[in-house]
Amino acid sequence: MNPICGDWRLQMKTPIGTIEADYHFEEHDGVVTGTANGAGEAVALTDLVTRDTPDGPRVTWRQQITRPLRLNLEYDVTITGGTLAGESRAGRLPRTRVTGRRITA
């Protein structure tokens, strides 16, 4: 099973404050998919890629949100046990620090 699979709670440190969202990842026939739930909306993740690196499993994905702002986000995180850390980016805006912890496997 892919190490990202399960439920995660992520925190993004943004210029407008810390935003929390819940993420669900699952694998079917070797393909990993995911959804994000936060700010009253659920969105599918796209371009989800996982790969092994010397620092641990690295996961990248994209998502489009409409709340609190309409943004196209790109995520790049590394998993270490039951936590993850990395960054997200929304277009030309500065990178945002992302941390997360596993809720369920």
Results as ranks from 00 to 15, higher is better:
Pro3Thr: 10
Cys5Asp: 10
Cys5Gly: 04
Gly6Ser: 02
Gly6Ala: 02
Asp7Arg: 10
Asp7Lys: 12
Trp8Leu: 01
Trp8Tyr: 03
Gln11Ile: 09
Lys13Gln: 15
Pro15Ala: 10
Pro15Glu: 08
Gly17Asp: 10
Ile19Cys: 02
Glu20Phe: 13
Ala21Gly: 12
Asp22Asn: 12
Asp22Glu: 13
Tyr23Cys: 01
Tyr23Asn: 01
Tyr23Ile: 00
His24Met: 05
Phe25Ile: 03
Phe25Ser: 01
Glu26Tyr: 09
Glu26Thr: 12
Glu26Ile: 03
Glu27Lys: 06
Glu27Trp: 05
His28Ser: 15
Asp29Cys: 00
Gly30Pro: 08
Val31Pro: 03
Val31Phe: 04
Val31Leu: 12
Thr33Glu: 13
Gly34Glu: 11
Gly34His: 12
Thr35Glu: 14
Thr35Asp: 09
Ala36Tyr: 02
Ala36Pro: 00
Glu41Gln: 14
Ala42Pro: 04
Val43Tyr: 10
Asp47Tyr: 00
Asp47Arg: 10
Asp47Ala: 14
Leu48Asp: 02
Thr50Ser: 13
Arg51Ile: 00
Asp52Met: 14
Gly56Val: 03
Gly56Asn: 08
Pro57Gln: 04
Pro57Asn: 04
Arg58Asn: 14
Val59Asp: 04
Thr60Gly: 11
Thr60Phe: 03
Thr60His: 06
Thr60Val: 13
Trp61Arg: 05
Arg62Trp: 01
Arg62Phe: 01
Gln64Ala: 13
Gln64Phe: 06
Ile65Lys: 03
Ile65Phe: 09
Thr66His: 14
Thr66Ile: 03
Arg67Phe: 13
Leu69Asp: 12
Leu69Ile: 05
Arg70Phe: 07
Arg70Pro: 08
Arg70Thr: 14
Leu71Asn: 06
Asn72Ser: 14
Asp76Ala: 04
Val77Pro: 12
Thr78Pro: 09
Ile79Gly: 04
Ile79Met: 08
Thr80Asn: 15
Gly81Glu: 12
Gly82Leu: 07
Gly82Tyr: 01
Gly82Gln: 13
Gly82Ile: 08
Thr83Ile: 03
Thr83Arg: 12
Ser88Cys: 15
Gly91Met: 10
Leu93Ile: 02
Thr96Glu: 11
Arg97His: 14
Arg97Asn: 10
Val98Gln: 06
Gly100Phe: 06
Gly100Tyr: 07
Gly100Ser: 11
Arg101Asn: 10
Arg102His: 06
Ile103Gln: 05
Thr104Val: 01
Thr104Gly: 09
Ala105Glu: 10
Ala105Thr: 06
